[in-house]
Design a binder for these strands. Structure first.
Lengths: 157, 157
DNA sequence: GGTAAAATCACCCGAAAGTATGAGGGCGAA
DNA sequence: TTCGCCCTCATACTTTCGGGTGATTTTACC
């Protein structure tokens, strides 16, 4: 308990102890030397200097170090392709259904209609129908154009 | 000159001046009040406290703030299309010719072989031949895959 | 001047893509 | 419940794409 209390206010105690020691030293000096008229000012001056030093030392120890934070903003360029953000508005605006978007995404990955059909467990004809609707809604004529437009709109990475 | 010198060591001068004023004050107090045996210690103590405070104040003013540099990484998303950097290495590595690259670029823009042929003033068959070489060099099977791969390689935006 | 690579074009054929049209089941809003 | 939209699938047809092969011309380089 007492130990913990001492630890917490360690610096304070040290300061108190230092002060006591110094005063004792001064008292001793006072008895040792006769203080003449002109020596008195020097004596006061010495004390002043001494305690100024003590004050500085104390301040150094007690005050939290001033921290000046310098914020440097480092710009990191990142490819938009790797951090793809789906454009919800464009999707809603296009009037495409979820299924159609799904087909479109597979299309952009380089899959053929047959592959897409197999992957979605539907017939090839179904995919073709989806494609027609996709092209219609994206206002394009071919899958290549659809991919190009979908990328521009932010529907696919 | 003198002014600049004063400015540079402003705090030092202030400290000196303060010290002088304080000493003068003490001298005045010394004349004003008779210092008795027991009052002397109190007097010294007052001086000690005073100059300790002065020291602390000085330290507060003099200590240089510790500069802490915080680097904040700010991510800037850039449009891959607008900030396209052509990957020369990939181009050289693929072994593609300039003409083939030209065809590839038009291909990615959604043009059909016929459109590309018209645009380059060559026959449809020529474009087909180019396509064959392109697919071969990119190690793909279809134009869609070629586009996908070309984008990955950085040959096209 | 010969050679290699690139670019050009042609013909055939099969595969894939795309168009047009119709149709049936499911599901939510009017 | 009817209407509209989505998803599904089918048939028939046209167009485009892609592979294979072969050929000629142009260009670049040793």
């Amino acid at each position: 308990m007492a130990l913990a209390f001492f630890r917490k206010y360690k610096t304070i105690w040290l300061y108190g102890a230092s002060l006591a020691v110094l005063l004792f030293l001064l008292k001793w000096l006072e008895l040792r030397f006769i203080i003449y008229d002109h020596a008195f000012e020097a004596y006061i001056g010495a004390i002043a200097l001494l305690f100024t030093s003590l004050g500085i030392w104390l301040a150094m120890r007690l005050t939290k170090p001033k921290v000046e934070t310098v914020v440097i903003e480092k710009e990191i360029y990142r490819d938009a392709a790797t951090n793809f953000i789906f454009n919800e508005k464009a999707f809603a605006g296009s009037g495409m259904s979820k299924r159609e978007l799904e087909v479109l995404q597979l299309m952009t990955e380089g899959h053929s209609n047959q592959q897409i059909a197999d992957q979605l467990y539907v017939s090839l004809n179904t995919i073709k129908t989806h494609n027609s609707r996709i092209f219609e809604k994206l206002d394009v004529k071919s899958r290549t154009q659809a991919i190009e437009k979908a990328k521009r709109l932010g529907l696919i990475p």
